[in-house]
Write a protein that binds this DNA or RNA. Sequence first.
DNA 1: AACTGTGAAATTATTCACAGCT
DNA 2: AGCTGTGAATAATTTCACAGTT
Lengths: 206, 206
Amino acid sequence: MNKKIPLVTVPRISLYYRALLESRHKDYISSEEIAYLTGFNSAQVRKDLAYFGQFGTPGKGYKVESLKKALLSILGTDRIWNVALVGVGNLGSALLSYKGFEEQGFKIVAAFDKDMRKIGKVIRQVKIQDIKDLEDTIHKKNIKIVILAIPAKHVQAIVDRLIKGGIKAILNFAPIRPKIPSDIHILNIDLSIELERLAYFLNKLR
Amino acid sequence: MNKKIPLVTVPRISLYYRALLESRHKDYISSEEIAYLTGFNSAQVRKDLAYFGQFGTPGKGYKVESLKKALLSILGTDRIWNVALVGVGNLGSALLSYKGFEEQGFKIVAAFDKDMRKIGKVIRQVKIQDIKDLEDTIHKKNIKIVILAIPAKHVQAIVDRLIKGGIKAILNFAPIRPKIPSDIHILNIDLSIELERLAYFLNKLR
DNA sequence: AACTGTGAAATTATTCACAGCT
DNA sequence: AGCTGTGAATAATTTCACAGTT
């Protein structure tokens, strides 16, 4: 009971949820089937789910509809999260236009840049604001998550401002890992590092 | 000697390499310093490096310049890798324009789409080709790594074609995990899952 | 004295295997 | 009979701690 949940369980829950979306037609689904659809092991599926409660019926499996609701509620995606984007360059613009976010309940409600030529422009109904309005808008729009798509050299300063402004969750695309207090959650998506992992693998082949 | 290298070591090596780039001014650097710069533990730094050889000098540390070269060679980024991009939508275009790749030795030399309105256009000196030329171009241009930025529903079919075409390393941005043989390396960057991890964390806060 | 390289210990995560429920 | 939930076993990874080198 009440064990500590491994960090890696959470992204798997997201994948299980997606597998359930594909299984709309059936009433019950077994851990074996979820495992097949997601590429994990059925014991892992059962254990991951069991961290959060008893969702299954022995002999039958998991009721698709109710498990789906349960997972949504675990992930916190049973509601809309307001998100801000900081940095409307190439990558930032692409993220602003990315439809996948809204589908999963993440709504980019504000975008910031410091380039005067961009400020005032509207992309996907979001008006690009001056970065100086950052803290103010975070409060007014009840923003809880920030996506950072700015050059590495500005990351630490912006992160410091975000934290002062009350933000606790950051998705950072810059190739740098800012120093943060332990109560802040940051996920770094570092595209070059991913390519380097692939290069390492290819390099090893001969 | 010759131990199995943990999978998670490789992305850390990338980060150590970056820390060395910041330390150009000094002759030697200790595992403690690398650890501080990257946010890991000094024992981990030493252990990670030791998987690949004996790079350090007891009492002094690691010689910055030679360790840098060694890490480049381990990662396989001491040479240029030709990369293809499949899918030139919002995200694909942004990746095509992303300068960070070239800096790390990854060169996008071809881009593919199936949309006739995009084919023939040139972005950053790369001409967008018809997806039907995929296999052909992969061979002609000696492409080893493919970045996938296409809708989920097309991923499996394209991945199958890539594998037949000899590709062994794929960076996939679509929110789906295609089935692949065990000798193929795929890394999935799933933006919604990352946001869901953040939402989970925020959700837990109260 | 300062620091590496590395076995051993500790921690974390995965998989096995089965008692018990439907 | 079929499948969950979960302790126990195994595997992977991190951290400790120190002998040995410069």
